[in-house]
Design a protein around this nucleic acid. Structure first.
Lengths: 234, 234
DNA sequence: AGGATACGACACGTACCGTATCGTAACATG
DNA sequence: CATGTTACGATACGGTACGTGTCGTATCCT
């Protein structure tokens, strides 16, 4: 009998203690192969056979750890380095400027290797909260959240009322930019200006009197998922 | 030589006129098989072999028409399943109500297909504006656009100023709902209310003084941009 | 009548899947 | 140290889907 990893551990996670232990070094190399394959050729190209070839491992060694390709990819993503919060303070002197800077930084992040990987996964169309977490990890800290300092500065300047909630920004900015990039649509200054002036700023102002707004998709606290049955007719 | 359909025609679309013409009835049956397979088991399960089995057709007959699964599925979507004709008229008596009805219709639309199909539709629609029209016509309004009638009614009620642009709705609603769907995040009434009250309505109001807003990604009038490959160096 | 094409059926080689079976290696326990 | 248990690489297996090609037959155009 074999004992696949549960969703995170690298040790057999079940069964009796005896016997040869799993080689953690093998696991590192395997997940490295998954990561590079993912970055080079996308989710589609991640194959048990190809991963085994690249890692000079046996398929049995892979199946012993992960039952599905999905599990394997998720494990590889989790093993990846965590994004560090970009320490650069955004402070251009105006709310419009700050939001523009955030948007541009987000676009840059999405062009980076990890952003690419995240988008490739989305493009693969797998519907998965784990995937969401990974995307959040990749692009969340660098541009898709609205720092409290930006809000405070805008309030101090009188550009926003008190009690603003970052929900609109964290829900919308990342989503629309991600989707536009994914589809090769232009994201130029004219577009960003329209987004900021006609959407983000009016929406942020409107959050002041509101209570109990949900968490934005890129807020870092994504809301739980309802178990959706994948089969329901049109 | 074989002559795949271009994106819409059901006739050979190229080559000399002579020879036996394609059987339109076969095509109807084949696309019906695709549609039912799509509904029953999702995009993944749509397979040339399985479609051929269900339609009692030869694989050659399929490949003669469509070069890829993508093309075949698009043709099936375009041909449309039996339409649900709940009156496409949206008029609840208030702007909030109308936007809520549109959002719920969009959620239904996106739930009626799996994530991959939804992405496929978006991408295909961006490349081929005609496809959007045909789908709206075939399966009814999807909820991704903001009908002018809704705007007019809201203006008449004094809920919106004159000169409102649908950009915020058509840019944002589809994006956030699609992305939440792809990530398996919850889309409930509380969320939709927050989206409508703190984002959509304030944003729509703010478009009145603006000029030359871009076209929303779900507007059906994609900005004519070369479909950029999602992998290009920073 | 002759040419060209569509159609169903099937065969072919490739790729990947998931499982299984080897022989060998590495540990845990007694 | 002996023994049982597990990991590991290699390889084989039957299955499915791909994309192409080749039959014989059917249907249409000129």
């Amino acid at each position: 009998m074999s004992y696949p990893n549960d969703l995170s551990s690298s040790t057999p996670s079940t069964g009796r203690p005896g016997g040869r232990p799993r080689d953690d070094q093998r696991e590192v190399e395997i997940l490295g192969a998954v990561t590079s394959l993912l970055a080079e050729r996308g989710y589609e190209a991640v194959t048990f056979e190809e991963v085994a070839r690249r890692a000079h491992a046996s398929k049995a060694t892979l199946y012993r750890r992960w039952k599905t390709k999905r599990d394997m990819v998720i494990a590889a993503l989790k093993a990846g380095p965590a994004r560090r919060d970009d320490g650069d303070r955004i402070d251009t002197g105006s709310l419009r400027g700050d939001l523009g800077a955030l948007c541009r930084r987000l676009v840059t992040t999405m062009r980076s290797a990890d952003g690419q990987t995240a988008m490739l996964l989305l493009q693969a169309g797998l519907e998965d909260p784990e995937l969401c977490e990974e995307i959040e990890r990749a692009v969340g800290p660098t541009g898709s959240r609205l720092p409290a300092s930006v809000i405070r500065a805008a309030v101090a300047r009188g550009e926003l009322p008190e009690g603003v909630d970052p929900f609109p920004f964290e829900e919308i900015t990342g989503s629309v930019i991600l989707l536009r990039r994914l589809n090769g649509l232009r994201i130029d200054d004219g577009y960003l200006d329209a987004l900021i002036d006609t959407v983000l700023i009016p929406a942020l102002r409107a959050t002041a009197p509101a209570h109990d707004l949900p968490a934005g998709i890129f807020s870092g606290h994504p809301t739980a998922e309802p178990p959706t049955d994948p089969k329901d007719a049109p």
